[in-house]
Amino acid sequence: MSDKIYNVLFLCTSNSARSILAEAILNEVGKGRFQAFSAGSLPAGQVNPIALELLQRNRISTEGLRSKDWNEFSAPDAPPLDFVFTVCDKAAGELCPVWPGQPMTAHWGVEDPVVAAGSPEDIQRAFSQAFMLLHRRISLFASLPLAKLEAQALKRELDQIGQTALTQEA
């Protein structure tokens, strides 16, 4: 068994909800195997309070979560990244910085709960659905035998996880 801790960056445009949720979920689910981070191309500057409340309700730590610019992770003193996942379609189409260490990348698009309209219940449901989908994908990712998979096989697995929906069976 490998003692390597994998550094994973989740990207979204505003880094206020989806990428924040993903960071917190992986740090919980992958404790000891992964160090997750999140960032955005145009960070909102604050974490969405509904996202924080949802994490707390699911007993996932919110300590240290903040909205960050993705340039923090392309700086010379940034942690070397093993994986970079985009969780919103807009960030997936943007020209990303060059990440030190040539991390493996994949797109795991999730609908933005921040733009959900309707009643407070509708908005909560949008956040819950984003959380559940991210939790499912991240759990699948965390269960992969990363040290044993060749690069092409790992890339296929990561892309397949990005297609995982809430209604699919594992």
Rank of each mutant, 00 (worst) to 15 (best):
V114L: 04
L140T: 13
G45N: 06
I25W: 12
F37V: 11
C96K: 05
Q129Y: 05
E23H: 09
A116H: 04
S119G: 07
L54I: 01
E53D: 14
S16G: 08
Q124W: 00
L133I: 14
I20D: 03
R125K: 05
G40H: 04
P120H: 08
W99N: 01
E28S: 15
A126M: 06
G64S: 11
E94T: 10
A117F: 15
S38C: 14
A39F: 11
D122W: 10
G118V: 09
R18S: 05
P120G: 10
S139C: 09
R125H: 06
L95H: 12
E63A: 15
L140V: 13
G101L: 01
S38M: 14
K31A: 10
P80T: 08
S119K: 10
F85S: 00
G109P: 00
I123Y: 00
S19E: 07
P120M: 11
P97G: 01
Q35I: 12
F131K: 00
A92N: 08
L133Y: 06
T86E: 06
S139Q: 14
A24S: 14
A36D: 03
P79E: 04
R33F: 11
C88K: 00
W108M: 05
A116W: 07
P79Q: 00
A22S: 14
A142I: 10
E94H: 13
T86H: 04
R57V: 01
L95A: 15
P113Q: 00
N58C: 11
S41Y: 06
Q46W: 03
A51T: 10
D112N: 10
L95N: 13
P113M: 03
A24Q: 05
S74T: 13
L95T: 15
I25Q: 07
A126Q: 02
P120L: 12
R66Y: 15
Q35T: 12
I20P: 02
W99S: 04
R66L: 15
F141K: 03
S139V: 13
V114Y: 03
V87E: 01
E23L: 11
N27I: 12
N27L: 13
R137G: 07
L134V: 06
G32C: 05
V47C: 07
A24F: 14
G101F: 00
D82E: 03
N15M: 15
M104T: 02
S67P: 09
E72D: 09
R137A: 02
V84K: 02
